[in-house]
Nucleic acid binder design. Sequence first.
DNA 1: GGGAGATGATTAACATGTTAAGTGAATTCC
DNA 2: GGAATTCACTTAACATGTTAATCATCTCCC
Lengths: 177, 177
Amino acid sequence: MARKKLDETRQGQGDDASSRRTPMREFSRSLPMSLLRAREAVMRQFRPSLRNHGLTEQQWRILRALTAVDEIEVTELARVAFLLGPSLSRILRDLEARALIERKAAENDGRRAVVSISAKGLKLIEAVAPTSEAIYAEITRRYGARKLAELHEMLGALEASLAGMGSADDAEVETDE
Amino acid sequence: MARKKLDETRQGQGDDASSRRTPMREFSRSLPMSLLRAREAVMRQFRPSLRNHGLTEQQWRILRALTAVDEIEVTELARVAFLLGPSLSRILRDLEARALIERKAAENDGRRAVVSISAKGLKLIEAVAPTSEAIYAEITRRYGARKLAELHEMLGALEASLAGMGSADDAEVETDE
DNA sequence: GGGAGATGATTAACATGTTAAGTGAATTCC
DNA sequence: GGAATTCACTTAACATGTTAATCATCTCCC
């Protein structure tokens, strides 16, 4: 796969001092890229099945999260399903329109909304779950259960490592508030 | 009506004879979720810096990939930068409008387009690279270089494990294999 | 009480992910 | 040599990611 030269040499325009460029890592060794590719390799397995049931990955995440609780506030659901507020808002609107979930206002706080899965939503989950688990089992079989557990642990440790790392923002725009 | 229990859907037991539902993994142990969270933890570090330079993550990926070659065809660029064709088309259109890249038709094939980074694009890369590398160095320091290498290897192995796994699509619609 | 500020949720605006369809140029096959 | 097919993008359409702004409560504090 093309171990091409790392030099510059664009067309003749401006042979400036760009020969002193900060050398960067090889692309394939980028951590975000590795994580992205691994995740895509996994999701590629699940997407067709979800699609056959009319669900996107995120919609599935939400319904899955809702099966684990009786009801849950939107903010907490966003945290659990790892979705940003705006995305969640849109998806909940759609899921509610499809009657897969139910929504009501919190009793003691008019701002908060409480969400729960509907009977129809539960049926859908039950329809998808077997295939989903079968795929997961096959992945586990291929990769190895022990290795999978180890990977989980290392990913968790990575998250933890970066937890308190304040964005080392360059060109920091003066926060003169 | 949302009448569900499942408050105790921890893995382990889960033999709910009455519901007979396929017990599913705890949410946090989902592999796609772990990968997503780890990746987000990493990208959260880079995004502010990129943003300060007017670049999105994907635009940065493309420019980064272009610095490694003299020129490259669009399809190959999509493979290297791990972007789908439609996304790449849009981004290239924007980057070309901003004069960060240049595009021309292949000489021997009118279908193919050849892309290269411009002098302006290179300047931008050089402006971002130091901060980007500093962040990466800090991540490596926190997580550990050895552990990072091991993680890379495990992610690559995961990809490889799933390489030939044909979508175990339920409700399979007659494929030709 | 009441106003300033905080908070939960949504909306807005733009960029990308994802799948399907379209377009124009090469290749195949008869 | 030309129709059919394949190929390399590109557009289209819809869903989500991401940041900022908005809106309606709620809380705090005087």
